[in-house]
Amino acid sequence: MASYPIRIRALLKGDVTSITAIVSHPMETGLRKDDAGKTIPPQYIQVLTVELNGKKVMESHLNTAVSTNPVFNFKIKGAKLGDKIVVNWVDNTGEKGSGETTVIPG
């Protein structure tokens, strides 16, 4: 199985936490062909969720119109320093990935 590293940063400024998640993923649309002319099967993230201390705070539904190795930026309120942020994703082939970090001062 391929490995899909994730890099996450969660920076708290005031009462807003800015989260950046860089996800390693091919995000194949299913429309491209390889050198031999065969169609490359689609593989893309369908659901990306973010948890704050185990509680889901965001869920996003993605499709093929997102680039390879996508970068996600979002802001949440109510997180405190040291809180645990977990990012999970599932793609259309059933592959899963996740990464976690703790909130640090921004």
Binding site: P5, R7, R9, T20, I22, S24, N69, V71, F72, N73
Partner: peptide, 12 residues
């Protein structure tokens, strides 16, 4: 500033 996928290769 928003995040550079190059960081994934840095991790690797």
């Amino acid at each position: 500033q928003e995040g550079n996928p190059a960081e994934l290769f840095e991790l690797q």
